[in-house]
């Protein structure tokens, strides 16, 4: 019997599962509490859902004035803008006005038909080029009223990288950390293998893996159609917006990306949702270490896989 520590908690709108094999329970409990504290700290800072977060403060004020921010947040937003450049704007933290248009306030249900003029209006307030960073002052400002940022597309990646650092500080060799199974970071390997084997499950066939990733010191991010907990029906919640058109991505597909950087994996899996295969390959050329696959479901619920890189 292999010893394994497991614990989990709710954070960042999903559950965070922490699996630490081969570590004494008391030590693992301590590590778990460190991980918990760090993720809660990040959520309180980065979530636009939290009324007192740094991001909420920015969203309320950065259209009127420059807001001084700390290095951690500055570096993160700077990195997000780099990803926007590298993905032709397909990854964009400024699409919150669009997202809010498409999602009703209370239930996260998709509004049936936002009118094109509403989309156009929201598009004016969206676009990473509205975000102005001043490295000298370490400040952020928006050049248009109503601009808002949302780090939700990358927050779990940030959290996973912090957890990675934390575990390294404590010399933890092997670990498996998962946010809702869509954002995963592994350290080292499974106690009985050379890696961690993670399969992307067929959305309509529970237990069937369509593609297996062999992960070692690696992150895996999956974007796309989701199914809901406790529901036998595949009940989809679309939550990805094409930043260029302002429309919701309704493709029956998922994108999975591996990278040694969890933030990179998150940004790319989001960006590739709105890319065709040629665009995807062109974007991925800038990230030669990453692997990316697309799984597309037909009307017959059959899955087809494309390996982008």
């Amino acid at each position: 019997m292999g010893d394994v520590y497991f614990n989990n908690f709710w954070a960042m709108g999903t559950r965070c599962d922490v699996v630490l094999p081969g570590i004494k329970n008391s030590t693992a409990d301590y590590l778990y509490s460190k991980i918990y504290d760090e993720i809660v700290r990040l959520e309180n800072k980065l979530s636009h859902f939290m009324p007192v977060s740094d991001v909420s403060y920015i969203n309320e004020n950065a259209s009127d004035q420059e807001i001084l921010i700390d290095d951690e947040l500055f570096d993160l937003i700077e990195k997000c803008l780099e990803f926007s450049e590298k993905t032709d704007g397909r990854f964009d933290i400024s699409i919150l006005p669009l997202l809010e248009l498409w999602q009703s306030d209370q239930q996260n249900e998709i509004r049936k038909n936002p009118e094109q003029r509403e989309i156009d209006y929201a598009l004016e307030k969206s676009g990473y080029r509205h975000i102005l960073l001043n490295e000298h002052k370490s400040s952020i400002a928006f050049d248009h009223p109503g601009v808002k940022i949302d780090l939700g597309g990358i927050g779990k990646g940030v959290a996973l990288e912090k957890v990675d650092e934390l575990l390294s500080q404590y010399d933890v060799q092997n670990a498996f950390i998962s946010f809702g199974e869509s954002s995963i970071m592994v350290k080292g390997n499974h106690p009985c293998g050379e890696s961690w084997r993670v399969g992307i499950q067929h959305v309509y066939q529970p237990g069937v893996s369509i593609h297996t990733f062999e992960l070692k010191d690696m992150s895996l991010s999956t974007s796309g159609m989701r199914s809901l907990q406790g529901s036998n029906e595949i009940e989809q919640r679309f939550h990805i917006i094409d930043p260029c058109t302002g429309h919701m991505v309704r493709d029956q597909k998922t994108i999975s990306v591996t990278s040694s950087s969890a933030v990179e994996a998150e940004a790319l899996s989001t960006a590739l949702m709105t890319s065709d295969i040629d665009n995807a390959r062109r974007i991925l050329q800038q990230f030669p270490e990453c692997h990316a696959i697309e799984i597309r479901y037909g009307q017959d619920k059959k899955a087809g896989i494309s390996i982008f890189q």
Partner: peptide
């Protein structure tokens, strides 16, 4: 699997996948 020393693929993201949207 770890408890039983089994190294195998674990399927993720199936019908019990928790969505990224607030749950």
């Amino acid at each position: 699997n770890i408890e039983n020393s089994v190294f195998d693929t674990i399927p993720i993201g199936g019908a019990s996948w928790v969505p990224e949207t607030a749950l």
